[in-house]
Design a protein around this nucleic acid. Sequence first.
RNA 1: GCGCCCGUAGCUCAGCUGGAUAGAGCGACGGCCUCCGGAGCCGUAGGUCAGGGGUUCGAAUCCCUUCGGGCGCACCA
Length: 653
Amino acid sequence: MVYTPRTMLKLSLFQELKNELSNNLRQHIEEVFGVDHDPVVQMPPRRDLGDLAFPAALHLAKVLRRKPREIAGELAEGLRFPTSVSRVSVEGAGYLNVFLERSSLTARILEAPVFGERQGSGEKIIVEHTNINPNKAAHIGHLRNAVLGDVLVRCLRQLGHPVEIQNYIDDTGVQLADAVVGFIDMRGMSLDEVEALPEPFDYTCWDLYSEVGRWYEEDADRKAVRRATLHELESDEGPRAEMGKLVARRIVGRHLATMKRLGIGYDLLTRESDILGLNFFASAFEKLKASGAICLEETGKNAGCWVMPLAQSAEFAGLEDPDKVIVRSDGTVTYVGKDIAYQLWKFGLLGRDFDYVRWEGEDLWETTSSGGISSHPEFGVGKKVINVIDARQSYLQKIVRVGLEALGHTEEASRSVHFAYEMVSLSQAAARHLGYLSGAGDEKKSFEMSGRKGIGVKADDLLDQAEAKLREMVAERYPELDADSLDDLARQLATAALRFFMVKATTTRVIAFDFQEALSFKGETGPYLQYSMVRERKIRRKLQEAGMATEVDAATVAGLDAELWADDLWDLVLTAAQTPEVVADASESLELSLVARQALELAGKFHAVYHRHRILDETDERLRHARMAAIQVFRKSSLALLDLLGVPVPEKM
RNA sequence: GCGCCCGUAGCUCAGCUGGAUAGAGCGACGGCCUCCGGAGCCGUAGGUCAGGGGUUCGAAUCCCUUCGGGCGCACCA
């Protein structure tokens, strides 16, 4: 038996076909022109121009000093492609276009799973996302983070990578300290009283947080209380630490509930207090000192601090202050310092580990400093770490990476990925609607949200509004439905609407949040995708009711005549076939809007086909089979995409 | 001052490893259900791709530059 090494894993049938054709063409170019050229594969803009386009002749024109169309013509002549290609033609400026066998290819796609063999190496990827300060309700900016993180995780897992999802809880920071000061010093409340506060506790804290900000300004001495509180939180001693624990626990519970509404979950909650409690930084500190990555500043404005010099790094050229403080002159550790320790732990480089307990009996773990459960899954020790953090923190994320490099962990530094996305701001209309615009003089186009000032749209409020509006729409159409079914449907539609809204924007663009836009459910929206699935389902149900088969098998499809495939019908199949590549691209480039756009394009083509090519009242059985096959292919791809986007598929709407 | 992001139709945005007539959605206007549900489909109007230079057979796309807008550059996280 001959052993054939498998150099390339198959992502999808379509990609495999493209690779095959590319290789054929490459070889042919070599034979005819004696040139080594790796051909690019594109899709012609319209199906009547072909299914695949090779602009090779356009590229070769320069080297060969000949007209592109001439070159393409010569290439087309002796080219031998596999039987899945029906014909080749020269189009436009000199594209070599390929027409595929529609029936046989559709049949093969129908049989194959959407995603082929697993691509992953089996090495764990750690994705950190959400990371909301535990002192207030989640707002729509946090939603963008969580949704992007969640979609990324779903894509990576689909592609075969083991993924661990971590949600970092900063329970020793100033933001939580402010909440503690608010309850104890400003409102004079006891631990029991705070414990007894009714839900929604995160809403209470939202208001409290902005009040504390104003309270500080009334009297300059009050900031001293915050410093003392922060110190107690860090040392984990005293009543303020107790209050901090209570507030953080209740708020985290609320955040988890909010995210659960959108189908977002986690494997592990890592808490900053445990990083301190277990002296993670002490280990990192020793390593940093030993490697010379940080040094003690003796003079200047940073006197008494341990700083990381950044001047040598080209990435930080032009900085006013080329040093970053890691340990303050009072001995406390900055955020970056803690983050370097955390990042080291994620890669298994710290030489220490947390203790772990279950979060409130759920299938979710949290770190602890002592008294952990002995039997827990292995956490950390990732091969690659992706931190989903907004673009404003690019500078800090860079420092963490440089820190790893300075410690000699260049490999891990290169596998430390900052998934940066731009923030969510409020549109002028939204700001006005919420009463943040005092006068008419403010002409700004968008307004940054601020937890500190209490400016923003709470995630739960937005979800509530979306659900209420959608519930009305469903109730109008289905007056006979009971309250539970209505709630359930409204939830599914609202989840789709908001998740899709957050993913469809490219990551480099600031989202200027607008209520009208976010609460619109037609056009490029989640419900538009769901509607296509509802329609597809309805066709099958009608077929069944009419006593007809609801599916066609591959053998039948393979035997269909080529002329049964209208261009738009075939185009639907071809678009669906590209799904795995789009997902792989999106995951690799961290541009998840590509997944959303693919789902949109598919749904759009389905809707058009739905109107033009009816199935139920088509008397020609062969035509019916071709149309059913196209829709089956659509359904498989679309279901896969909606799953990746976290968009639920309702039975009706 | 230095760095990153954005500037494309009235509005919100795709397209950016250069290539086939610059595309969607919303809004506007006009059509399409005795129905596989109109949360849909089809059509019309709407664009000096911010301005200026350059590279190229070819630029929304690459380079330079100017002008707008956003965000970073803490002993805050």
